[in-house]
């Protein structure tokens, strides 16, 4: 049984048909990169996986739970699906440690001490153990994004969704964030990345999904897809970005 099951999902924004029947199965431990032009529906698809966006037709299940936009269901899903954003979205009024411990304490009912230990564990994983008591604005963009990853990991999700998480970073900071992802992948975390980092998608990803006009246009083994695109649309896209 796949960890994530996306079955013929359609979504409309008014008259705009943004997802036109997407089917995708993701196995536990897989690293999937979703690539495509802006407006191809890739971010929307990602945001449907944890209920941040609703969909109009079809079905999505994660960890055998149906994904809906219902608050209770999203709360349950949050224990299985984590998400990291392009703009970090750390809570600026809380310290790094408080950013990380808030949800485990409230949602998973972890004790304050356990949560603190957990925070140090996940911070160590992203190499920022010494920043526990800093505020987000005291950190660089790359560090903030690593804290955001740590915050998601503290909920111990089975799959981590990453929405263009390096796009807002200065080029020299991108590497640190990608290294963290690579380590997570090596540890067996299921990752779904919407990304413009083609090298990363090719070298670390297991599978690449190319989205075009709201559909999965082409998909397959990461290295093969980049080496021999089957559709002219993907060829054009690769030529443009590489």
């Amino acid at each position: 049984m796949s960890l994530v099951n996306i079955d013929n999902v359609h979504k409309y924004y008014g008259d705009n048909h943004v997802l036109k029947g997407v089917d995708l199965k993701i196995k536990a431990g897989e690293v999937i990169s979703i690539i495509g032009r802006s407006g191809s529906g890739k971010s929307t698809l990602l945001r449907c996986i944890n209920g941040l966006e609703s969909y109009d037709k079809g079905g999505i299940t994660v960890d055998q739970m149906e994904v809906t936009s219902d608050e209770e269901q999203i709360r349950k899903l949050s224990k299985s699906v984590g998400m990291v954003f392009q703009s970090f979205n750390l809570f600026p009024h809380l310290t790094v440690s408080q950013n990380i411990t808030l949800a485990p304490k409230l949602v998973r009912k972890v004790s304050a001490e356990e949560a603190d230990t957990l925070a140090l564990q996940v911070l160590e994983k992203v190499g920022l153990k010494d920043k526990a008591s800093s505020y987000p604005q005291e950190l660089s963009g790359g560090q903030q994004q690593r804290v955001a990853i740590a915050r998601s990991l503290a909920m111990q999700p089975k799959v981590l969704l990453c929405d263009e998480i390096t796009s807002a970073l200065d080029p020299e900071l991108v590497g640190d964030v990608l290294n963290v992802l690579e380590e997570l992948a090596a540890e067996g975390m299921t990752l779904v990345l919407v990304t413009h980092e083609m090298n990363f998608a090719r070298d670390v990803g297991d599978r690449v999904i190319f989205m075009h006009q709201g559909k999965i246009w082409e998909s397959g083994d990461a290295k093969e897809v980049f080496a021999a695109p089957k559709t002219p649309e993907l060829q054009k896209f690769i030529d443009a970005v590489l």
Partner: peptide
């Protein structure tokens, strides 16, 4: 920023928890 709501929802916080803490 809308991202504050989105990040909180993804972490599983309820409406009242998001209001109260974030």
């Amino acid at each position: 920023p809308k991202g504050q709501w989105e990040a909180s929802r993804c972490l599983g916080l309820s409406y009242f928890e998001i209001m109260r803490h974030i």
